[in-house]
Design a protein around this nucleic acid. Structure first.
Length: 430
DNA sequence: TCTGGGGTCCTAGGACCC
DNA sequence: TCTGGGGTCCTAGGACCC
């Protein structure tokens, strides 16, 4: 059996921790750049505020109902996420390295195959209560024989909080059938917009229960090959998607941002890309990896005539490094010529980003026959910079190419304080 | 005026090899 | 003039996730 533990309205719950006055009030959190709404409490959902809608479209509604609006505060959410995950690991401690998979900032799977069926419900309640007590974050728990089914359980637990106490265990055929009949295919983990539409319009498959009875060979042809086959098997209670090893490293590392205001010149564009490269390199070093390729992209908002149409155009270019590296200066040296070659004067740029690929462990760097050996002496310098930036303040030490002006940086007008990670912003009591 | 950021897995198809 | 079969590696692009 698998459990999925999911924090309820995670970002909003984080904000509420430091604003108890908002406990029963509608709260929303905005995406970077205060662009759109990416988290809502139940109260906000009830007002008809949808996920992902642009802020400017819902301003009226928010004002009308006195909704509390926050810019996203990733320092805070990241720190609270760590506390929740640490708690889960502690509670599931029989094999600390294999049994908890942190799936996202607010979700974790736990492998419960060692527990007797009769113990599942009380274990779930224990998780919910202890996490709530220690971190202040409310969570929902779904338990079922496969990951896909546990997500189904979790969703239903959350939908009827008062009835379920945020816990649902699907451990017998009847409860499983009932749950799958109540679940629209579009609400399944792994069925997105496109497949949901295809399933309904072409095949008349509307519920998870119906999908469960489709043949595997049909799924192989029409639902993304082996991905579709796995979906059918998971729905039938046969686990096909294992827990991921927590030591696995990322295969791609990206840092991308919308600009606070549009950029027209090469200089700030280069500054931005250098800054993103430095950030991506930090992430790379944090997992003890090196990258062999770098991809730079810029986004223009397309042609604009008459009424405004959001029509982003991506342009990218990539370079291969002579040998894999995690050295910020080497990566910036590779990135800047790519920006230069992408740049077109007179163009309005709204976003840019850097993606590192060809990621390998940095302790086993393969030599390049045609290039000098990889310079590793910068590693100590890089570590020093990382330590200073982590403990003192963001970007206390940075590369000159990153610039000092940063006119392009994002807007965050309604950000709460970083209560838990910055001494000068720590929460004050009475 | 204004629309996030960071990932994963899979498949098809081309280049290349023996 | 004829023109196989089996494999690997890489990239682009599609679909999905939170």
């Amino acid at each position: 059996m698998f459990a999925i533990i999911d924090c309820n309205s995670f970002y909003c719950s984080c904000e509420r921790l430091f604003r108890p006055d908002l406990q029963r009030k509608p709260v929303v959190v905005l995406s970077n750049n205060d662009g759109c709404i990416i988290a809502r409490t139940d109260e906000a959902k009830k007002l008809g505020i949808d996920m992902g809608v642009p802020l400017f479209e819902s301003r009226e509604l928010l004002k009308q109902h006195d909704v509390a609006v926050f810019s996203s505060n990733y320092h805070l959410y990241g720190d609270l996420s760590m506390r929740v995950m640490d708690t889960l690991r502690l509670l599931a401690d029989h094999d600390i390295h294999r049994c908890v998979e942190v799936y996202s900032v607010d979700e974790a799977f736990i492998d419960l195959s060692h527990l007797p069926l009769a113990a599942l419900r009380s274990f779930a309640a224990h998780l919910r209560d202890v996490v709530g007590e220690w971190t202040g974050i409310p969570v929902s728990v779904g338990i079922a024989p496969s990951k896909v089914l546990s997500k189904v359980a979790n969703r239903l637990a959350k939908k009827a909080k008062h009835k379920t106490g945020c816990i649902m265990v699907l451990d017998d055929p009847d409860s499983l059938q009932e749950a799958l009949e109540m679940t629209d295919v579009s609400d399944l983990w792994g069925i997105g917009r496109r497949y949901a539409r295809k399933l309904k319009e072409m095949y008349g498959v509307n519920t998870a229960w119906q999908l469960r009875h489709m043949p595997q060979e049909w799924a192989r042809k029409n639902l993304g090959g082996v991905v579709g086959v796995r979906m059918i098997r998971e729905l039938n209670g046969e686990p096909c998607i294992r827990l991921k090893d927590p030591l696995e490293k990322k295969k791609m590392i990206a840092t991308t941002r919308m600009f606070g205001k549009p950029v027209f010149d090469l200089a700030p564009l280069k500054e931005a890309v250098a800054t993103f490269t430095a950030r991506a390199a930090e992430k790379l070093r944090r997992q003890y990896s090196a990258a062999a390729s770098i991809d730079v992209f810029v986004v223009t908002n397309g042609t604009q005539s008459g009424s405004y149409v959001y029509n982003p155009q991506h342009h990218h270019r990539y370079g291969i490094l002579t040998h894999p590296t995690s050295d910020t200066s080497a990566l910036i040296r590779a990135a800047l010529p790519l920006v230069e070659s992408l740049f077109r004067p007179g163009t309005k740029y709204v976003k840019a980003g850097v993606m590192l690929g060809g990621i390998v462990p940095d302790d086993a760097l393969q030599g390049n026959l045609f290039a000098p050996a990889a310079p590793q002496e910068n590693r100590a310098l890089m570590d020093a910079i990382d330590n200073i930036n982590f403990s003192m303040r963001d970007d206390m030490v940075k590369f000159a190419a990153s610039g000092l002006t940063r006119n392009w940086k994002m807007r965050q007008e309604m950000r709460s304080k970083r209560f838990t990670t910055r001494w000068d912003e720590v929460y004050e009591v009475g």
